[in-house]
């Protein structure tokens, strides 16, 4: 079972799709890596030999931020916004949309599940 960038073990799928199971690698970067390594993107992950795996791992190590390191960078960026007391940091703190979207309705991704407030007759308890 191939092992790339820590604990990720994508297998049985074509390598160009398998690589996307790594956090930080999407369609574009997966194809970039394979063309840099000169590996046919349509081969199955399980068909690659150790040397090819090592080659892919090497390219990722050198050129791409993935998994833990990438997650750390993202949360550091957010923490920075909070620390300087910027508007965007405040929106992160409150769990509201950061990029100026409306919040009168929708925005459920940031606000979480609906919290129904008892009020007029129409709302069921």
């Amino acid at each position: 079972m191939p092992r790339i960038a820590g604990i990720d073990i994508p297998e049985r799928k074509k390598i160009r799709y398998a690589l996307r199971y790594i956090y930080g690698i999407g369609p574009k970067i997966a194809d970039d890596i394979l063309s840099a390594a000169g590996i046919d993107p349509d081969r199955r992950a399980s068909d690659l030999n150790d040397q090819e795996i090592a080659q892919i791992a090497g390219i990722i190590d050198q050129e791409h931020l993935v998994e833990g390191a990438l997650r750390r960078q993202v949360s550091q960026n957010i923490q920075r916004l909070r620390d300087i007391r910027a508007y965007r940091g405040d929106r992160h703190r409150r769990g509201l949309p950061v990029r100026g979207q409306r919040t009168r309705c929708n925005a459920r991704t940031r606000k979480g599940r609906k919290k129904t407030v008892a009020g007029k007759k129409g709302v069921k308890g």
């Binding site: 620390d83 300087i84 007391r85 910027a86 508007y87 008892a118």
Partner: peptide, 25 residues
């Protein structure tokens, strides 16, 4: 202004709206 604020705009640090919670029925 601290070093971290470079590249941001002054208005980002002076909030214009204050939400103190909804009215209690």
């Amino acid at each position: 202004v601290t070093e971290d604020m470079v590249g941001h705009r002054l208005g980002e640090f002076a909030p214009t709206r204050f939400f103190r919670g909804h009215t209690n029925k």
